[in-house]
Design a protein around this nucleic acid. Structure first.
Length: 516
DNA sequence: CAGCGCTACCACACCCC
DNA sequence: GGTGTGGTAGCG
């Protein structure tokens, strides 16, 4: 008895001296890593900007998440941590319900969709069928715009439907392909759905038929901001134009029926009976919050779960559970690093912000250097369209010699492939741009249709969606591809970064160009 | 102490016929 | 009536 007590005492004394040698830290910190590894990161912020500032100061691969914590007002706090650590505390689903990923502005991301319709307002709508048709349409558009192949098996299909609402998230898992950021995703999605907007607009026209020769004709007032609308006065001449307009409209409808894809399945009614799209276009804004796999909106108890008709199955891995795989796959900004990663872009207003962006990103050197951050920075600096590179050359006086610029243009346009300039970075990239024809931007489209003295410009305007548009649908889309052609890459790089005369350009390259 | 980024909508000024 | 602007409620 006494002996047992002595042993116990000794044990306690040993433990006491152990804690004297290695005291517990004053503040408990959750810790996934071993003591010799870097400490865990788990920080909460009231302001999103503070969270992102912390991420910038952080070497580790951390991300910003938004947590809903008050019912009613969608007020959120912001959590910064790693995917692994979040999953560790998240997976039990006893805490951290109502979590959102913050899709950072300017961050490479996946193609994603938020789909929903009110069941009561759309009796007979077959949600699953609509999802399948949409996926088909998206894959076709990816193929036609970017020559990117995919199928329903590449799409993670998450469901959070209720009796009232059909609701899905789609996240595309494209191999070695991602979008520049979610603004570009939005541009692509809106372009891809253009035939559907025209359908809605034309059906609205049918519901409110305009009286011939009356005040005005309303035309194609779409929910997209680049939609076309114009009006006219009731003179004889204008009546003629108005008729032209109507006949064009009919022609447009005809061609829409014949050649552009039939997207009528995407049209649903909201709870007041107005026609809308099945696809929510409000989710492609800066720093958009996107609900995590197995999270629910606060106040509701409907988490996102793998849909029964989901066809995406993550590759099985020994140390990552299937649930964790789905969790990671559902993260829109979780783009897998790859040295052959292609970045898709879709510019709406080509002439606006690009150079500004270039200046901005080029000053942000020396940032934290995880592979991912390096990659994103590299991408940012390389994401210049050919036009912008020319502007940049002119703007910065990089090359005072027109023949150098000519040479560069020839070089990168070789074999009908327009190109960009691989800058000094881990990954060398080449831009594959669309062929010659200058695409009519939405601004020119608007200015054309607004000009009352040029009905012919309306007729020939790209404001109508035609088969040709669809086939040429590459529009402002660019594909960036890794290139193994080191010689070409190096020459282009040197051309941009400081050759001062034609003498300095390697002979063999000059010969190559002259031979063309 | 404490959210964020829009867009649709409205009100208003100003212009032109 | 058309067009442009500025402010904001409310949606996602």
């Amino acid at each position: 008895m006494k002996r047992k007590w002595e042993a116990r005492l000794k044990q306690i004394e040993e433990r006491a001296s152990h804690y004297e040698r290695e005291p517990l830290s004053l503040v408990y910190r959750p810790r996934l890593s071993k003591p010799e590894e870097p400490p865990s990161i788990w920080k909460l912020f009231h302001r999103q900007t503070e969270a992102f500032n912390f991420v910038k100061s952080c070497k580790e691969d951390v991300h910003v998440f938004a947590l809903e914590y008050k019912v009613g007002d969608g007020q959120r706090i912001y959590l910064v941590t790693t995917y692994a650590q979040l999953w560790f505390y998240y997976k039990s689903r006893r805490n951290l319900l109502h979590c959102y990923e913050v899709i950072p502005e300017n961050a490479v991301c996946k193609l994603y969709f938020d789909l929903e319709f009110n069941r009561l307002a759309n009796p007979g709508a077959d949600g699953k069928k609509m999802v399948a048709l949409l996926i088909e349409h998206v894959c076709r558009a990816l193929q036609q715009f970017y020559r990117v192949s995919c199928s329903a098996e590449d799409v993670l299909n998450l469901d959070s439907s209720t009796n009232e609402k059909f609701s899905r998230h789609l996240i595309f898992q494209l191999h070695d392909v991602a979008f520049k950021d979610n603004i570009h995703v939005g541009n692509f999605v809106r372009k891809m759905l253009e035939p559907a907007f025209h359908l809605i607009a034309s059906e609205d026209d049918d519901m409110t038929p305009e009286t011939m020769g009356h005040e005005f004709s309303h035309f194609s007032e779409t929910p997209v901001k680049q939609g076309i609308s114009f009006s006219k006065k009731s003179t004889d001449k204008d009546m003629g134009e108005s008729w032209t307009t109507n006949s064009k409209k009919l022609e447009r409808l005809g061609s829409a029926k014949q050649s552009s894809p039939d997207l009528s399945f995407l049209i649903v009614k909201n709870n007041v009976g107005e026609k809308h799209l099945f696809v929510d276009l409000g989710v492609y804004t800066r720093n958009r919050n996107f609900r995590l796999y197995k999270s629910s909106e606060i106040g509701k108890y409907v988490p996102l779960e793998v849909a029964e008709d989901n066809k995406f199955y993550p590759v099985q891995s020994e140390n990552i559970s299937k649930e964790n795989q789905y969790f990671l796959s559902a993260l829109v900004s979780n783009v897998r690093f790859s040295d052959t990663l292609r970045i898709l872009t879709y510019d709406m207003s080509q002439n606006k912000q690009r150079v500004e962006n270039f200046n901005h990103t080029s000053t942000s050197e020396g940032r934290p250097t995880t592979e991912r951050l390096k990659l994103q920075l590299a991408k940012k600096e390389q994401l210049l369209t050919l036009d912008k590179i020319v502007e940049t050359i002119e703007g910065f006086q990089c090359s005072p010699y027109p023949e150098i610029d000519q040479f560069v243009l020839l070089l990168v346009n070789k074999n009908g492939i327009k190109g960009g300039f691989p800058l000094p970075a881990e990954v060398r990239l080449l831009f594959l741009l669309k062929e010659e024809e200058e695409f009519t931007t939405d601004e020119t489209r608007d200015s054309e249709t607004k000009n009352p003295h040029e009905p012919s410009s309306i007729a020939s305007s790209k404001g109508t969606f035609s088969d040709a548009d669809w086939d040429n649908g590459i529009d402002d889309a660019y594909i960036l591809e890794a290139t193994e052609d080191a010689e070409l890459a190096e020459a282009a790089e040197n051309s941009l970064l400081g050759y001062n005369g034609i003498d300095e350009i390697p002979d063999e390259l000059i010969i190559e160009v002259l031979q063309e």
